[in-house]
Design a protein around this nucleic acid. Structure first.
Lengths: 254, 254
DNA sequence: TCCTGTGAAAACTTTCACAGCT
DNA sequence: AGCTGTGAAAGTTTTCACAGGA
């Protein structure tokens, strides 16, 4: 899932598996909570439970980072927090811009989880001139015209796209052109980007569809109309998937 | 990533791999776009490009559903749309409730991608009495007190949690108790649920952290201070990860 | 005694490459 | 001639199970 057009041949930097990288933020969150409760050490079993994984996986994950635990005891919470933060690159400051300040963009701007993890919202950008200057989450919304200047002036390398689907590729192109090399895309579109640019995608409706798939199974556990034989239904059931889709995400720039 | 506490031993229903299920919505989106342009057939190569995967993977994925293509020609767009929709359970109507109507909840309520895919927002629920009755996305917000009644009356089996982290588990418990068996969780917390309930998690800051990891690598490609030797840094670098986290997502119920 | 770190096995996923249908 | 469907190979991720340090 998600690392842009560019296939990343075998970059798996310093050998940390992608699956492990994807779990580090989970561990970090659990550790931060322990740290706040001043818990000094934690076992792989406890931490795994708090993070929602199993302990063997957690230990294997940590083994890619180094030997940071103590046998018979567990892991030093503060030390691990530091190591994981460093590994993820969160010990430095990452200025980000959010483009598309609808409901979703505003939600992101207000999201407390960013600031506390090394991300700083450098600017909020929207195409609607009526939005310009309005404060959202304490920052004045800036107009799209200023996009390039904002990127350059702030040394932004990470951009968040929360525009409608139709605008996403164009915004993406401008971000990349201006120097952004990582993009988090909330618009329901496949973005194409040049080699070297990472894209991750969050799609609100995809997750629901996956749930629906499993939910359907639960329901049809007994009197299943979805029997073994693939129905091979009417070839002309067009009935579906038309209508006013447009696929606009939760943005209301007007 | 993410299917709740319950480990799903080998449920992999009718043998469709989880990785494939996760991509079906992607294909569906690309196919819907083609359908709207009245494109009658599409090759695995074309569709793969539109969906952002490679064609071998796509063909393999489709082979789990059945033989729905025609050699030498490709896939019938309408027919495939129907088959995938049916497989995902989108040919039926799924009433969902959204709990926590802050920015994020409102963004979700306004999200067009739901309605067009068989999901119907049955109700918006918030704990703030001041919100009650206010219309959001054309629906009046209802108070948490009514949660159980709403679930029961509408036969809701899918719930979306967009509350602050602190309220999430409690809301989750009430949803499950009332009969919800699938939960999409936007709160940055690990939810614990009984066997048989599916949880999927979307975490806004985790995706950014993964991007930061890769971004860091790009930067340190040459003059890397992150050399081969694991620094084994000062044991007491506590410096990090404290502060006012709270981990509240983008919700402003007040 | 307890709990980490890790080889080795098992499970899953992706990719290759080509037989076979239209 | 073109494109699907799929075995088999390659790669990745998870899980097991236990040696070995504190």
């Amino acid at each position: 899932m998600a690392t842009g057009r560019t296939h990343r041949p075998a970059t798996r930097s310093r050998g940390i598996p992608e699956a492990t990288v994807a779990r580090l933020p989970l561990y970090l969150r659990a550790l931060t909570a322990l740290s706040e409760r001043s818990v000094p050490t934690v076992s792989s079993e406890e931490l795994a439970t708090a993070a929602g994984v199993n302990s063997a996986k957690l230990r294997k994950d940590f083994s890619y980072l180094g030997s940071y635990g103590t046998r018979g005891v567990g892991y030093d919470v503060e030390y691990l927090v530091y190591q994981i933060s460093r590994e993820l690159g969160l010990t430095q400051d990452w200025p980000v811009v959010i483009v598309g300040i609808g409901n979703l963009g505003a939600a992101l701007a207000n999201y407390g989880g960013f600031a506390s993890r090394g991300f700083r919202v450098a600017a909020l950008i929207d195409a609607d001139p009526a939005m310009a200057g309005k404060p959202v989450a304490g920052l004045p919304v800036r107009h799209t015209d200023e996009l390039e200047a904002i990127i350059t002036d702030n040394g932004v390398s990470i951009g968040v796209i929360a525009t409608p689907a139709g605008a996403a590729q164009q915004v993406c192109d401008r971000l990349v052109e201006a120097g952004v090399t990582s993009i988090l895309n909330f618009a329901p579109t496949v973005l194409s980007v040049p080699e070297g640019v990472d894209v991750r995608k969050v799609d609100l409706s995809i997750e629901l569809q996956i749930l629906a798939f499993h939910e359907q199974r639960k329901a049809g556990e007994d009197a299943a109309q979805t029997a073994a034989t693939p129905p091979r239904v009417p070839r002309t059931t067009g009935g579906g998937r038309k209508g006013p889709d447009g696929d606009v995400p939760a943005v209301m720039p007007a």
